[in-house]
């Protein structure tokens, strides 16, 4: 009996090697996707089917089984890489390379894809049919782009964010106060800060355009007792308290 052809396994090894190289040296998502997606979802399963020697009777069956085996190989890979603390891009690339090389080194058990029941058979495609399929792909892609555009443009709520952060551990005397506008138009605000109810700082006529952020660090004294800081955002246009936030200023640490 003739020895089964192992060129596909050699090709898988080369593909896996190229994936390792791409992951190691390239930041190109396109290049890595072109190499990595087939590796993770198809090729690794194909080499496992060849290594086990599973018989398939049609291309559709072989593709389905290859994808299933790829999923299983990837799951096993997750556990192996976790055990050796290598759950990272290069770890994955080397895992698939190891699987491909192992399948190449195992004795071959035959490639049993029957050409008689290939997936689409001897399909003859007319030019208008190819054009219709290309147009369909264009329309579907355009529709997805339209969906993304609609989502980005969808802002049901208009609002102004107002916040006050307590002093950080490394920066004990600094409060952070911020305003961000997600309104439809620019707004003017007055901002007042009190410390234990007493006026401490005032910022008048802050004009903030949609999408803009205003942030200030405000130095506060550290006392022997804890203080409560409060910031109020007013809209001068209608003399209205618009937002209110607060923070605790911790007491000085005992020496």
């Amino acid at each position: 009996m003739a020895s089964p052809d192992k060129r596909d396994l050699l090709g898988a090894c080369m593909w896996a090697g190229a994936t390792v190289a791409a992951v190691a040296v390239s930041d190109s998502t396109l290049l890595r996707a072109v190499l990595g997606l087939p590796m993770a979802l198809l090729i690794s399963g194909h080499v496992v089917l060849r290594a086990i020697g599973v018989r398939t009777t049609s291309l559709s069956e072989h593709l389905a089984y290859s994808i299933g085996a790829s999923l299983a190989v990837t799951i096993v890979g997750g556990f192996v890489l976790n055990a050796i603390s290598a759950l990272a891009p290069l770890g994955w690339a080397f895992w698939y390379l190891a699987v491909a090389i192992a399948a190449r080194l195992l004795p071959a058990r035959g490639n049993d894809v029957s050409p008689a029941r290939a997936w689409l058979g001897p399909l003859r495609i007319q030019p208008w049919q190819a054009a219709a399929v290309a147009l369909a792909m264009l329309v579907a892609t355009g529709a997805y782009a339209l969906a993304i555009h609609d989502q980005a443009a969808d802002r049901q709520f208009r609002y102004t964010e107002f916040w006050m952060l307590p002093p950080a551990k490394g920066d004990p005397g600094q409060l952070v106060v911020g305003v961000h506008s997600a309104e439809a138009q620019a707004g003017t605000y007055d901002l007042e800060i009190t410390l234990d109810g007493k006026p401490f700082a005032v910022f008048r006529s802050l004009t903030i355009a949609p999408g803009d952020t205003w942030v200030r660090k405000v130095s506060v004294p550290i006392l022997a007792t804890q203080q409560q800081a409060e910031a109020r955002l007013y809209r001068p246009a209608d003399n209205k308290l618009y937002r209110r936030v607060s923070a605790l200023v911790p007491e000085a640490e005992a020496r």
């Binding site: 994936t19 992951v23 930041d27 190109s28 998502t29 890595r32 996707a33 190499l35 990595g36 997606l37 590796m39 993770a40 979802l41 999923l71 990837t74 799951i75 890979g77 997750g78 556990f79 759950l87 990272a88 891009p89 770890g91 994955w92 690339a93 698939y96």
Partner: peptide, 12 residues
């Protein structure tokens, strides 16, 4: 595992 494997390999 499978999702992060794809994300890690492709950078997506």
């Amino acid at each position: 595992i499978v999702t992060t494997a794809i994300a890690n390999l492709t950078g997506l």
